[in-house]
Amino acid sequence: MSETNQSQPKRRFDIWRTKGDASSGGEGAFERYETEVGEGMVVLDCVHRIQAEQANDLAVRWNCKAGKCGSCSAEINGMPRLLCMTRMDSFSPDEIISIEPMRTFPTVRDLVADVRWNYQVKEKIRPFEPIAPQAADGTHRMMHEDVERIQEFRKCIECFLCQDVCHVLRDHQKFDEFDGPRFFQFTAGLEMHPLDAADRIPDLKHRAGIGYCNITKCCTNVCPENIRITDNAIIPMKERVADRFYDPLMRLLRFVFQRPSANR
């Protein structure tokens, strides 16, 4: 093999280091590191090199190193990115690269954010409820054209970068009233599932707070899977909420047709 050991250019990094132990609430500062960068390296490689050579106790969360698991989410030069999918040659040669944890969530330590809130939100969403199998052999049928649009949503690797960038969470801290783009997209995937029987539209309006989203598309822009979260998931869900709750004709019809049952 032809890995070369010739001297590699050094690059500078400002990495967020928390002070004290985990109870200090993530307070910290950037610390400057320098390390050699070889061909094809991504930012995560540099973080690992710094960890191995200079800072054994530098905390970073990672796993697959191929953009498939969504563990190594962070903010690189202020942008939410995956550390493992950000190539060093995407920066200009003398640029200092700053790396910090996702800021929308509490910091556990150094580059590691506490993302547990996201898991709690997901548990609140009504799970998939299958209709009875339609085919004579007792199995389901779905046409490929019908599954393609939800397969886009199911590419999600749950890196939570879309949650990190969303101003409703980041700036307005609506953690109790707003599920965030990841979970609107998750809900859209269930609502558009050809085999699903449950109704999550009232929940989207009342509990999940989809109305707070003003479709700035920041989530779409940071998605490493290039899922068109706003156009293909959030807007269709907003339309369904509007049809259900704000369309005057529909409201009238519902009013008329619900009255008998309401009087029963």
Binding site: R141, M142, I150, R154, L195
Partner: peptide, 16 residues
């Protein structure tokens, strides 16, 4: 599939 997995499909709508 009954738990929500979405596999690629055959032309007649079965699992490819």
């Amino acid at each position: 599939e009954a738990w929500g997995a979405v596999f690629d499909r055959t032309r007649d709508g079965r699992i490819l």
